[in-house]
Design a protein around this nucleic acid. Structure first.
Lengths: 203, 203
DNA sequence: CCTTTTTGTTATACTGTGTAACAGTATGTG
DNA sequence: CACATACTGTTACACAGTATAACAAAAAGG
């Protein structure tokens, strides 16, 4: 196994190989189901020796994880910066910007939702998004009820993901601007309107 | 392959074998991940010959489907009857009853969420629940906007599933009564309050 | 250059799936 | 109850995809 420990793999051959493998996987996932992708196919498309795969990854799942982490990191920073910018300011445009961003990288996100076949990935994504909203949505944190906070941020994260997934399945209709409105009213407003009465819920 | 075509498999041996295989799978899924379950394990636990599995199912996925369809049919009829009973009547108790029901069969539903590893299953579940709400929640259908209706019923279905999943992960806290309140306010009320302004959304 | 590290080639073991042939056993039907 | 039919069990085996090993070749970096 090439030295993965070092903070950044200096050797350009390693970077190249890993990039080729990631790209090959993404390319294949655009064509067919993850379950029917074999390591041999990936290495062939990447023009890399079969054994080389195992010199970098322990399993196919691990490579998938790396790919998703990468693609996801982008969405995360995107949502996070949006969430920071608009502290209770214009949630509708925040929503619009999210859906415009998703629309631009539709291919990538379709893959992401396909790969949710792996439950762990899905849960990880939800947790990440939930954490972001937990930080940014101050009113929830101020309620001082950890259970309610966890539940609501989980609700926002899963609802947002589901809405995005539905939107992609629905050929990206309605337009981002309208989805922004939906985002605000359906997902954000509902939790805000429910937070006060909920602070009394459970311990 | 035993005659699967006949409406009901009269031969008691067939019913017995298939039941044993289903039970063995459920039993194994309570212990470990679906991905790490092999056909040989199932047949061993079911005390059935290895080859017998292939005389009844084409793949492991197919058996899983049968198990889920069975367990799911129960939840469906349960939710459906609840949804019918309460046309805009007491949504809070409807929610409470749902979570009480889930709590009673917690083991089964934990398996169901584990098995969402298979994307198809997850989507199928969502579609089923969405259809139920699409029928019962008349105000949405009356809006006369098919896109909005599809979006909202999808939102209700996925939100409800996510809430249930979170609740099971959170050791079934808060109590069903409180979850009923959450269900009404967070999931149902939000869509009702959003339906009127949304009838203008898209085409 | 010369050492170190990575990659390619070839061969091979291993594991889980899926099939075949034939013998044994249960079912329900006349 | 006997009989044809259908299901199940045992054994053996072919096959595919995973994973490893040994050694040669090539690229990186001081």
């Amino acid at each position: 196994m090439p030295r993965k420990n070092s903070p950044i793999n200096v050797d350009p051959r390693v970077r190249r190989t890993r990039r080729l493998l990631r790209e090959a996987l993404v390319s294949l996932m655009m064509e067919k189901d993850f379950a029917s992708i074999f390591i041999r196919e990936i290495t062939e498309r990447a023009e890399v020796a079969y054994i080389t795969f195992f010199r970098h990854y322990e399993s196919l799942d691990q490579l998938l994880m790396e790919v998703l982490d990468e693609g996801l990191a982008e969405l995360m920073t995107h949502i996070e910066t949006l969430a920071k910018q608009s502290d209770a300011s214009d949630l509708e445009t925040e929503g619009r910007l999210i859906f415009e961003y998703i629309g631009q990288k539709a291919d990538l996100f379709r893959i992401l939702f396909k790969s949710q076949s792996v439950t762990r990935v899905r849960k990880k994504v939800v947790r990440n998004i939930a954490t972001i909203f937990q930080k940014s949505c101050l009113p929830l944190a101020q309620s001082g009820n950890p259970t309610a906070t966890a539940m609501l941020s989980n609700h926002i994260a899963t609802s947002l993901l589901s809405l995005i997934e539905w939107w992609l399945d629905n050929k990206m209709n309605p337009a981002p601007a309208q989805m922004g409105t939906v985002y605000k009213r359906l997902i954000i407003d509902s939790t805000v309107s429910v937070v006060t009465p909920l602070s009394a819920v459970s311990r």
